[in-house]
Each structure stands twice: as C-alpha cells, then as structure tokens.
Amino acid sequence: MYIIITGLLLGGSYALIAMGLNLQYGVARIMNLANGEMLVAGGFVAFWLYTTAELSPFLSIFLLAPVVFALNWLIYRIMLLPLVRRAKTRGQLEVDSILATFGLSFVAVGLMLAVFGGDYFSYSYLARSVPIAGDTFALNRVSAFIGAAILCGLVYLWLNRSRVGLSLRAVAVAPESARLVGIDVAQRSALAFGLGGAITAMGGALVSSYLTLDASTGVIFTLKALIVVIMGGVGDVRGTIVAALMLGILETFVATVIDPGLTLAAAYGLFILILLFRPQGLFGRASA
C-alpha cells in the first residue's frame, strides 16, 4: 500500500511532465529531446525564487509558465519550423529534429552548468508528514501530486472543451486535413510546442519541491517522459496519465524492494515490453 501511494504521488508529476512532451510530439510532431532540460530549468527557477524570495513553488509556476511558453514558442518558430519546412519526408524531419533538440539539450545543460555550477540543488519546502491510509507521507509530495492533478485536469478539459483545444487535436490527428478547414498548422504547432514546454517546466517546479535535481538530470526525465508517452500512446491524454502512474508505481516498487539504483533499468525494461508487444501504446489501436 505504501508503495502504491508513493508510486501514485510520483506518477502524478510524471504525468504532467509527459503531457508536456506529448503535446509537443503529438501536435507539433517534434520529438523534443530537450524536454528534460525545460524541467530542470523550471526546477532551478522554483529553487531560486524560494531561496531568495521565499516564494512558494506553487506560486512560482504562474511566473514560470508564461516565460517558458514564450521561450519554447520562439524555439519552435526560429529553430524548428525551418526544419519542418525543409524536410522532404517525415523521416528526414525526425532525424533533423532529434539532432537539433539534442543540440538544444546539451547547450541548455552547458549553460546551466556555467551559470549554476554542477551542484545538486534542493530546498526544504513543506517538509512535514501527513498520514494517509495508515502510513505517513511527505506533505510536499502530496501537494505536488495535487498540483499536478489539477494542472493535468485543466489541460485535459481545455483540449476537449475549447475551440483551440479542438483545433490542436485536429492538427494532431491529420495536419493536412486541418489545413483544409482553415487551421493555421504552423501557428497551432508553435502554440502546442510552447504550451508543452510550459507544462513540463511547471512539472519541474513541482518536482523540485521534493526531488533533488542538478543541471544534468534532464536527460533522465526526458527518457522517462518518452517512455510514458510511447506507453500511453502519442496524443492520448488519458493513456499518458495511466502510463505515468504505472511507471511511478513500478519505479517505487523496484526502488523499495530491489535497489534504488535500478529505477531507470526498470522503466527501460517496461519500455522494451511495450515496444515488443504493444508498439501502438497501451490503449492505441493497431494502425495501418
């Protein structure tokens, strides 16, 4: 029971982070390998605002979101859109975007190392314990989970109820047809890319309240987010949430029962199983 609840609490943050990546990959068709760095940057900002201005991470996400959105929007417009335009095939775009976002990721890590140094950073926020179902849990984990759940819910509602959300889903399913009904695909892709970055960075701020981060941990989160996205199905919000919670529980289980050093190995093992048996995602239909 302890494992399941801790796992769910962790999985909530994973869901938010992966949702950001899924928006970027599902709508803008860019597999953003610099996604984890956005997360770490979000964590950095939350850490900095908390230690210098005692601003709660739950408030700093509101400062963070518009800035990161603008940054990612610019990245898409300036760096990625030219690649989209130049690519003759989907495969070429794939290779180009992988290399470009790897480049971005390394540059981001390099800059963060230069500015903040290679130290781990953590701060103590809401480090009290709350009892749930007979066990005690850190309040910061619980509050981060609630924050993530609220944000996930908002994104889900927005995608499914609003006009813009509908157009994003249209681009995700069929960019060519979306263009025919008058949707500006490049503009919507930039929007989704920016939004995805902002969501991930908010996830980073929440995670930083209970996990220790450093400049080079981004890639681990990218890997986990990718696993969640593929497991849940590209463009599938509910699948992402379920997959993230599963990953959270699995990792917690492996860390408590076997060895904390094997969490990534476990996530990766899960990924292999998914690739071999359900490459279309847990809930995806077999495509043509």
């Binding site: 290399l99 470009a100 480049g103 390394f106 540059v107 390099g110 800059l111 230069a114």
Partner: peptide, 16 residues
C-alpha cells in the same frame, strides 16, 4: 566544464 556546451553547439552546427 564547457564540454557539454561544445557537444550541443556541434549538433546545432551539423543540423543548420
């Protein structure tokens, strides 16, 4: 300390 940055720039140079 700047080796990561170099790798990143190298990737970007290759793509662009």
């Amino acid at each position: 300390n700047q080796t990561t940055l170099v790798l990143g720039i190298a990737f970007l140079v290759i793509v662009y």
